[in-house]
Simulated assay, not measured.
Amino acid sequence: MDNLDELDKTILRILQKDSKKTAKEIAITLNLTISPVYERIRRLENQGFIKKYVAILDKKLINRSVTCLCQVSMRYHTEAFIEKFEQQIQDLDEVQECYHMAGQVDFILKINVKSLEAYHEFVRYKLSKIENIGVLNSTFALKEIKHTSEYYI
């Protein structure tokens, strides 16, 4: 982050809010010409600061409004079991995020599904098929207070 100046940070903030902004639109906002803005964006992409551009969907409109945070504790903590779990989670489309944790819980999964019944089916027919899961503890979001994909920079 040391190699980012304030202009780079401003460009990143603009693109986090709306990745469809063109170099021309950003240049106008910053009172600059298009070329240096375009070159900075390309450099930020090439250096890996910008990983990809995505569309953030409305989970209610796509019928995935039930958000569950599922805590997973493993029975055995060998490297092989952990790696296998991490690989198998990649194949579960319902899992939006997965974090390997320190403490009593080994993993936290963020899962979005259309209903409690759909979550039950997911656990019963997919998640429970993963070897070495010892304990599952599911909590459900009643209301989404804040959801952002933006990082403070």
Rank of each mutant, 00 (worst) to 15 (best):
E117I: 08
F49I: 06
Q47F: 02
D18A: 05
L57Y: 15
Y38Q: 14
F49Q: 08
F122Q: 09
S19G: 10
I133S: 14
V113S: 00
R75L: 03
K17V: 06
S138V: 01
Y119A: 11
T78I: 08
F81Q: 05
T33E: 04
N137L: 03
T78R: 14
I56R: 14
F140E: 10
F140L: 13
K143P: 13
Y119D: 14
H77P: 00
R43V: 03
R43E: 03
E144G: 12
R43A: 04
A55N: 09
S65T: 02
K129I: 01
Y38F: 10
M74T: 13
C68Q: 14
S115D: 15
H77D: 01
C98F: 07
L15N: 01
K20N: 12
V135L: 03
I14W: 05
S19N: 05
Q96I: 11
Q96S: 08
E144W: 06
C98W: 15
R43K: 11
V95G: 09
K114D: 08
N137R: 08
C70G: 10
K143E: 12
A80W: 13
T33W: 08
Q90G: 06
Q88I: 11
K114M: 15
C68M: 15
A55I: 14
D18P: 02
Y53R: 03
K110L: 04
E131Q: 12
E86L: 02
V113E: 11
L32W: 07
G103E: 12
K129C: 05
L57W: 03
K143C: 14
F81K: 13
E117N: 12
I133G: 13
S73R: 14
F49T: 13
V54G: 05
S73Y: 04
K24W: 04
A27T: 02
N63Y: 06
V123N: 11
F107G: 11
L127C: 07
L61P: 00
A23L: 01
D93K: 15
S128R: 11
A23R: 03
S138N: 08
H120I: 12
Y99N: 04
K126D: 14
N137S: 12
K51I: 11
R75P: 04
I41Y: 00
I14P: 14
N31A: 05
A23E: 01
Y38C: 02
R124Y: 12
F85C: 03
E39V: 02
H120P: 06
K146Y: 09
S65P: 01
I108P: 04
E25T: 00
I133R: 07
H100M: 11
I56L: 04
I108R: 05
T67Y: 10
D106E: 10
K17C: 01
G134I: 02
E131I: 10
K60Y: 08
I108H: 06
L44N: 07
L136C: 07
H120R: 15
N132V: 01
Q47T: 08
K143L: 09
Q88F: 09
Q87C: 05
E86I: 11
Y76N: 08
A141H: 02
P36M: 03
T67S: 03
T139R: 05
D58S: 06
Q88E: 10
D106Q: 03
D18I: 01
L109G: 12
R42D: 00
Q87M: 05
F140H: 07
F107Q: 15
T29I: 06
S128F: 13
L142Q: 07
I108K: 06
K129H: 02
K126N: 11
L142R: 13
